[in-house]
Amino acid sequence: MKTFLQSFHILTAEDIENFMKHTRRKTLQKGAFFVRENEHCNEVAFIESGLFRSFYHNSNGEEVTYCFLSEQSLLTAYSAYITGQRTTENIQALAPSELVYISKSALEELQENNVRWLTVFKTLAEQEYLNLERRIFTLQRESAEQRYLHLLQHHPKYLLEIPLQYLASYLGISQRHLSRIRQQIKN
């Protein structure tokens, strides 16, 4: 967590130590939820180890996976965290996970007392926007095979650790289509 915060080159060592005083640790087992739909999300967590998926239910009640997060990533139901409303998403551990988390009230306190935190939060919000835009463009511009190849190139660990039904959902295709793509790439 400290290394992650230092990577912004904005905060002082004292800023980071003060932040760490407000954090807590949490262990989640495989299958456990960080947050479920219709709950409030008043925490931000840093994934020290583990793997998560974010998903929602579509109008047919089917699960749609839209995001995977692993080590050295921040974890929260971002829109619910910002608005204070109940979340429409579920964030579930796909592996045993270790988190360091901090409450929204503690983050707001840090922000009110130190302008450097505003800069860090602005940077994080910008990164989240860019990630979201990249995801939308990928789904709209690339074929399913291109999306799979991108995962293979940039996140090969996901292909080994994530169940096929979640990968297929994330890629916006059926499991059957995913199996065909995987077979074509092997040949």
Rank of each mutant, 00 (worst) to 15 (best):
25 R>V: 09
92 Q>H: 07
168 A>L: 14
38 N>I: 11
70 S>M: 08
24 R>N: 08
156 P>Q: 04
174 S>I: 15
55 F>Q: 06
64 V>K: 00
175 Q>P: 10
13 A>I: 10
104 K>Q: 03
163 P>A: 15
77 A>L: 06
99 L>K: 09
186 K>H: 06
23 T>N: 06
116 R>A: 08
81 Y>Q: 05
58 N>V: 14
28 L>S: 05
21 K>H: 10
174 S>L: 15
43 E>G: 00
91 I>V: 15
82 I>N: 02
21 K>I: 14
19 F>M: 13
21 K>P: 00
30 K>L: 05
65 T>M: 05
59 S>D: 06
134 R>L: 11
40 H>N: 06
161 E>L: 13
66 Y>G: 14
59 S>E: 08
114 N>T: 07
113 N>E: 11
124 L>F: 10
177 H>R: 05
153 Q>L: 13
39 E>Y: 13
167 L>Y: 01
150 H>M: 12
180 R>C: 12
36 R>Y: 06
109 E>S: 14
121 F>I: 07
136 I>N: 04
14 E>N: 11
42 N>I: 12
16 I>A: 05
106 A>V: 10
8 F>R: 02
151 L>K: 03
65 T>N: 06
22 H>L: 10
16 I>P: 02
107 L>P: 01
20 M>D: 02
92 Q>G: 00
113 N>P: 04
136 I>K: 00
126 E>C: 15
179 S>G: 07
159 L>A: 03
37 E>A: 08
83 T>G: 13
172 G>I: 09
45 A>Q: 07
171 L>P: 00
69 L>H: 09
93 A>V: 02
26 K>T: 12
43 E>F: 09
82 I>G: 03
175 Q>D: 12
152 L>A: 13
35 V>C: 05
122 K>E: 02
47 I>R: 01
5 L>E: 03
136 I>M: 07
74 L>C: 06
26 K>F: 07
43 E>N: 03
80 A>M: 09
114 N>I: 11
88 T>D: 04
173 I>Y: 00
